[in-house]
Amino acid sequence: MAKVIEGLYYSNEHEWVKVDGNIAYIGVSDHAQDALGDLVYADCGAADTVVSAGDAVAVLESVKAASDVYTPVSGTVIKVNSELCDEPEKINADPYGCWLFAIEMSDSSELDGLMSAEAYDAFCKQ
């Protein structure tokens, strides 16, 4: 069963958002890493880019497929987790411990449109 962590926001594209002040850390859910399978490549995007909610920021590739990671919130990418480029398999092992990129939010009310852990868990079971 895919794990869901309390206290995070979730998108219907299976990203999670961890909020620290005005900074949003974004990663992919356990459900997403399981669906992707063994990851072999991670491109976590570029810092200092201005993005809108729904933009593709990062790319994850498994043995079988490439998958875009979208930002659920708008703002400026302030840092990317480039360590994951060399060890994308860490995301399989610990999806909630691996943020891909961090965004300084321009409109934190966008978080209201995301799911709670409970709602996301139900969403995955649909």
Binding site: G37, D38, S62, V63, K64, N92
Partner: peptide, 9 residues
């Protein structure tokens, strides 16, 4: 099955 829990690799 595309894979089992062990994974493709």
């Amino acid at each position: 099955p595309v894979q089992y829990p062990t994974g493709i690799i």
